[in-house]
Design a protein around this nucleic acid. Structure first.
Lengths: 373, 373
DNA sequence: TGAGTTGCTGCAAACGATTGCGCACGCTAT
DNA sequence: ATAGCGTGCGCAATCGTTTGCAGCAACTCA
């Protein structure tokens, strides 16, 4: 990249580099004659001069680059999240460096080290664990960041997360309304806020409906399709009278696995077993049966987190500022994987409206057309 | 990011900054006493010193950052591609800035301008059009780049693309072997190399099998689900005796749309209509019926392109070097969306082996288990 | 003893921008 | 005539590194 420099421009116009800099950066305090301004502008346009951002960044201590860490871009949850982040960042003149960690502390640390060496102004983190020590380090070094999707426990971090407690309640309320009583839950890792909250929400919702939680129906499986298969397979070893008639799964991938395992065991979905997933990634609308799931507002989350981060960067970086913590409402998308349980008559209250004063989110459910696509 | 500087370290140890720099960057030509070396290393570790990459980059004229441009990360084709790129880049010590263009020239130009201002060492482009003028500009400015997935016509660019001609032939050979004679094609845009080549390959393959191409069965639709629906709907307006019994679609998204439109018109897939897609994005293995499609080796493509780019960066940047141009073999994944045509008896040669001396790729097909997942 | 070699480190100029400060000029007011 | 002020621009330091070159001691060899 052999490029023309500020100095070259200045020499050609016959002025000092500082003058060119002032003209080009539109310094409002500078008093410049219209003639030199015009000559500089014209020559800059003619030569196609582009300032060297590297030098500029070094001087002004800002790169206009953000870093984003996610487990895996191949997962639609994160690709949608990133897309929203990149759009919002681009609109504000920022670029984004994206790093996949596979939730491995080693890769996380490695990326964080690279990013911490000065090339990024701030960080969007979608990889947080509930007690993540890496984030403390960032905080100590004064690197601005916002957590996305997952958050830490009792922290002073800024974050934007979905209302997972509400999501779990919507799912359970839906299944209960259909007539289910024995409801299982396939949980994710306990050290991740999203899945931990979904589990807690599940327990709460069961209690609110006066249903005892059978601990054998709760298992920590994981968030992959394979994990869902294993978790479901484990449940299916229970004696027939203790089998669940419905299952709420911590995310859509695992739900896909659960459906596969149930079918492999000869069960029909939703006739013999209702399945509710979480996230609403696009493919689950296409499969047979289309999955009932909790929709997480990924795009607004990504946009919001980015705007919060950028605002922090622009403003005073006083670390004493109040952290911004946002919980976004989710909603239930009812498709074809959920139905009344085999033996039961349909619930006498097919559309129960559960009171839940302490959550902000609405309890509305979206019902989608379920015609073949 | 209040950070300790090289100078601070030097002062504490009582040596000149240059000495510290030499120790820390492991300069092989420098002859340094073991004692100073040890003291510097120790203090650096103790203080957690991290060199400022920005300053370093400015000096050495390399940022260790790559840029990648793609239409949309939300499309699995590109998220898998990016994942492979990021892995390969990370292994070589590079970060990657990712930009979505939505195939819009405006956004492309905007991103290219930002990236061209000095923060990236090279570019991976998955957005090329067959006569892309933006790329000429890059070339003129001496910015190293490698095209990925799509390429330009008759150019001196480096690129890594799938063998789309072979892919189209595999698809057609498969359909012909099943007994199909009236085969339609839903094409993508003509100014993009992948889809243009798939169309050309389709024509060639039909000719090779002695089948006339009915031009009314070829339509340029687009690469989205909606485009596939529209394209299929258009075909379905043909009189019954001119309808195709099979359709080869330029990508999986459009194939999904085609399946939906066919069903909406009362056709069964594959009983009344066979559908073959392209790319093999993960969801098409989950849907009902699982889609027969051409698998593109996205991960190897991404890895290879990155390695080529990085090698160029490391070596002499002589622009006179021979461009590296790689075409990767694809293969056919036979699932459930393709079957013999309604009226015909199965082909007498169910597994024809077509000779195609001029392509390098093998003609093997992969047959997947098609049990419900 | 003196010239040449080797081992270690400092000096200072880059890289390409930004920016506080001050100088010189021309104008007005006293 | 001189002080005072506004305008337009140049000077030079700075951001935090890297690196070619020079210099100085101690040691080797004739």
């Amino acid at each position: 990249m052999l490029s023309i420099r500020l100095r070259d421009l200045a020499r050609q116009v016959g002025v000092h580099p500082s003058t060119v800099s002032r003209v080009l950066s539109g310094d409002p305090t500078a008093r410049l004659s219209q003639t030199t301004r015009a000559r500089i502008l014209q020559l800059a346009a003619a030569t196609g001069y582009r300032p060297n951002r590297l030098a500029r960044s070094l001087k002004i201590q800002r790169t206009q680059i953000l870093g984003m860490l996610i487990p895996d871009i191949t997962n639609p949850v994160f690709s949608v999240l990133f897309r929203a982040v990149e759009d919002a960042a681009g609109a504000a003149g920022y670029n984004v460096i994206l790093c996949n960690t596979d939730d491995s502390p080693a890769r996380l640390g490695q990326h964080l080290r690279m990013l911490g060496e000065g090339h990024v102004d701030g960080l969007l983190l979608a990889t947080a664990h509930r007690d993540d020590p890496f984030i403390d380090e960032l905080r100590d070094r004064g690197m601005p960041y916002v957590l996305l999707n997952r958050r830490r426990d009792a922290s002073e971090d800024c974050w934007v997360v979905p209302d997972d407690r509400q999501g779990a309640r919507l799912a359970v309320a839906h299944l209960v309304a259909l007539g289910h009583r024995r409801i299982a839950h396939l949980a994710g890792a306990g050290d991740i806020s999203t899945t931990a909250t979904r589990l807690a929400g599940f327990r709460d919702a069961m209690a609110e409906h006066g249903l005892a939680v059978d601990e054998t129906l709760i298992s920590e499986a994981g968030l992959t399709e394979a994990a869902g298969e294993r978790g479901m397979a484990r449940l299916l070893t229970l004696p027939a009278d203790r089998l669940p008639t419905a299952i709420f799964v911590a995310n859509d991938f695992a739900a896909l696995g659960a459906v596969a395992a149930a079918r492999a065991a000869g069960l029909r979905v939703p006739d013999d077993l209702s399945v509710v997933g979480y996230d609403d990634i696009p493919p689950v609308g296409w499969i047979e049966p289309a999955l009932t799931t909790v929709r997480v507002p990924l795009k607004p989350m990504g946009r919001l987190a980015t705007e919060i981060l950028i605002q922090r960067l622009g403003g005073s970086l006083a670390p004493a500022e109040q952290p911004v913590q946002v919980t976004l409402s989710v909603d239930l998308v009812v498709r074809r994987s959920s139905a009344p349980p085999p033996t039961a008559e349909p619930s006498f209250k097919p559309r129960t409206r559960v009171s839940q004063p302490e959550t902000l989110g609405s309890l509305t459910s979206t019902v989608e057309r379920s015609t073949p696509r």
